[in-house]
């Protein structure tokens, strides 16, 4: 369709992606990615639903006053904000350090072989 943002990159025909997929570099990249995001996703979803169930079924506990009018429910809610910010920062550090270097290497070597955008995007 003539809207390729990077017109000098050729087609993907020359590269066998299954070979790349099985290469040790790519296997390592996938392992590093999944070993971070899967456990982390499970962890924050458990923590979120624990909070939701407490707010739904443990009214007395959540209504316990801590300081003045601040109760347990408000504190746990605000801690959801804190954990979201913390996981975000953690992931960015991990991705910059552990994922990006390998991903960039693989990308450069593929682009040197002439791989561009997927065909029907052009």
């Amino acid at each position: 369709m003539g809207n390729d943002p990077n017109p000098d990159a050729g087609t993907a025909a020359a590269v066998d992606f299954q070979v790349v997929q099985d290469s040790p570099e790519f296997t390592e990249l996938r392992k590093r990615h999944r070993s971070f995001v899967f456990p982390m996703a499970v962890a924050f979803l458990l923590w979120y639903f624990a909070y939701v169930l407490l707010a739904d079924y443990a009214h007395d506990f959540m209504s316990t006053k801590l300081w003045g009018n601040i109760n347990v429910g408000l504190l746990l809610g605000l801690l959801q904000f804190v954990s979201t910010f913390a996981i975000t920062t953690w992931y960015v550090r991990y991705a910059n350090k552990k994922l990006d270097p390998i991903a960039t290497d693989i990308r450069h070597s593929l682009e040197d072989e002439g791989v561009g955008l997927p065909e029907d995007t052009k």
Partner: peptide, 10 residues
């Protein structure tokens, strides 16, 4: 899978 993790071409 290779594209999604490496961003090749994109």
């Amino acid at each position: 899978e290779v594209r999604s993790l490496t961003g090749v071409g994109a």
